[in-house]
């Protein structure tokens, strides 16, 4: 990101012919900035690549626990956020389009729209994080909502979460339905704010049921990883689910951080565009910010199916 803003900064002190001292002409400068930005994106891809590798390793080992955990994410919110981000990508692309045309007003409007959708994305993300906080799914002890047993006794309604929690709008799978039901049956008690898994083992049961047909549904790692002394061990199962949530929070958290940086870039662009700094000849900052924004969008395009849509077919009973 440093690369990015710095690149703009360099070009921002633009005065005819607007050339940095080290370049021979404008074309050379544009090429340099463009290659630099792409090289930066390459390193960004590798940066997220390390996380994807971790995801791949653990998902290939514990697919059932991952599917179980994923079913508890709200795919509707995730899908909505994907759409929000795609719209913001469109407006960003149009901002570049209008910058090329030298249309200042449309440029400003598009940048504002991009910022609005970017903020909406972060808003939805915040709602989702709050939901995780309220249901004890943050994999760090002490970072979840702390509810003592006595508190629950006094509150007549043992609802999951509490006043701050959103009622999830669309319940699609049996797992989600029964997870929500489980949560309602069992009051949320978490005096130390620990990671909790109260939503059972629906995917696991499904796989065990399916195995009766003679086909293997558990990996070798799972046959060791979920059992103690031959019995299913909920605590060991929970630990694998916790790994999913750890990866989920690191990946979406880093992605959200990139969004925040992107919004910072947008604010600067907005100011510059409003002042009419860009023209048909000089719009590289808009274009480079656009590349960054689209890159962040692409990361989400992969995060959405990989985190939200696992193993939903196992238990697809509800809306479909």
């Amino acid at each position: 990101m440093a690369t990015h803003s710095d690149t703009h900064h360099e070009e921002f002190h633009y005065h005819a012919p607007g050339l940095q001292h080290q370049f021979e002409d404008m074309k050379q400068q544009e090429e340099s900035v463009s290659i630099g930005m792409w090289a930066f994106l390459v390193q960004e891809i590798m940066f997220f690549g390390g996380l994807f590798t971790a995801y791949l390793v653990f998902r290939s080992r514990f697919p059932l626990a991952f599917a179980e955990a994923s079913n508890h994410l709200n795919a509707f919110w995730g899908g909505l956020n994907t759409l929000v981000l795609i719209v913001s990508s469109l407006t960003m692309a149009l901002a570049v389009f209008y910058a090329q045309k030298g249309n200042r007003n449309m440029q400003v409007i598009m940048i504002v729209l991009t910022m609005i959708f970017g903020t909406a994305f972060l808003g939805v993300k915040a709602i989702e994080y709050t939901d995780k906080y309220n249901t004890g799914l943050i994999p760090v002890t002490g970072w979840n909502k702390k509810v003592k047993e006595s508190d629950v006794q006094h509150a007549g309604e043992p609802a999951k979460g509490s006043e701050g929690a959103f009622v999830l709008p669309l319940i699609e799978t049996k797992a989600e339905a029964s997870a929500a039901a489980d949560d309602h049956e069992k009051p949320y008690i978490n005096p130390n704010g620990e990671f909790q898994w109260n939503s059972g083992r629906h995917v696991f049961d499904y796989a065990i049921e399916k195995e009766k047909s003679g086909k293997a549904y558990l990996t070798a790692a799972e046959r060791v990883g979920y059992f103690s002394n031959g019995e299913f061990d909920p605590n060991k199962y929970r630990d694998k689910i916790r790994i999913f949530y750890f990866i989920y929070f690191v990946m979406t958290g880093l992605h959200a951080l990139h969004m925040v940086v992107g919004l910072g870039l947008m604010s600067w662009l907005l100011w510059a565009a409003f002042r009419g700094s860009f023209s048909g000849e000089y719009f590289a900052p808009v274009e480079m910010s656009g590349l960054y924004w689209h890159f962040v969008d692409i990361v989400w395009i992969f995060l959405f199916p990989l985190l939200y849509l696992l193993g939903r077919h196992f238990l697809a009973g509800g809306a479909h």
């Binding site: 997220f48 390390g50 971790a54 760090v140 790994i243």
Partner: peptide
């Protein structure tokens, strides 16, 4: 960038006491 993310994961694991490298919770 890969070592950057690796060190970051290590730092998170060390700070908040949970992560993906700890064999005690099924990490690797």
């Amino acid at each position: 960038p890969v070592i950057a993310i690796t060190v970051l994961l290590l730092a998170i694991e060390r700070t908040v006491g949970v992560g993906i490298f700890d064999p005690a919770i099924g990490g690797d």
